[in-house]
Amino acid sequence: MSILAFVTAVAAMLCLSLAMARHHRDLFGRPPGRPRQLLYRLLGILGTALCLLLNLRDGGGEIGMVTAMGQLMGAGILVGLLLARVATAGMNNSRR
C-alpha cells in the first residue's frame, strides 16, 4: 500500500534528522545522547529499507525502485519543511 510506504518514508527521514544535533535540539531542546543518536540512525536506515521493500512488493523491481526513490525524496523535503515550522514556532514560544 503506497500510503503506508510513504508514512514509512517520512518516519525514516524524521529519524535520520533526529540523529542530528540541530534538529533534535529544535524538537526536544537538547542534542541527542550517543546511544540515542545511533538508535535514530538505525531506525532511519531500517525505515528506508522498509519503504524500499514495500514499494518493491507493490510495484515490482523497476517501478518499485522509482516510487521508493520518489517517496523518500518527497518525504525528505516534507521533513525539512516541518522541522523549519517547528523550529520557528519554538523560537516564538521561547521569546514569549
Partner: peptide, 17 residues
C-alpha cells in the same frame, strides 16, 4: 508514462521542488 498516478504525483512534486 508508466505505473499509475502515484508516479506522476511524485514527479510533479519533485518537479515543483
Amino acid at each position: 508514462q508508466f505505473g499509475g498516478s502515484l508516479i506522476r504525483l511524485l514527479y510533479g512534486v519533485l518537479g515543483l521542488a
